[in-house]
Amino acid sequence: MKYLFIESRDPFESTDTQFFSDLVKGVKKLGRETTLFLVQNSVLSTRKGAKYNDQIAQLAQSGVTVLADGFSLKERGIDHLVEGIEVSNMDQLVQLLLEPETKAIWH
């Protein structure tokens, strides 16, 4: 069983991102293959030096695959990312969604 979490919210505007981040970490601790895909304003915390870099970095360090939508990054002029994040795209997101036995959860 795999989990694909898609985060669209950012911690500057939504304190509920902490809930989602904890859920992602908790699922990873269960031993599930876990991916977090950042899209829309969620990528605002990936810019190197941003206030919430640690929240993202901790997820990557815990073994969660953290991907960021390249278009959302480009749209916001973000080109220097905190370590541990891979630039991704819709092609990869669709492929991840269609991986067998994947549970997809949007936030």
Binding site: G26, V27, K29, K103, I105
Partner: peptide, 15 residues
Amino acid sequence: ESLPAFIDQYDQIWH
């Protein structure tokens, strides 16, 4: 704390 194991029981999680 028990939420990850709770959601793991379901085939689809619609948030």
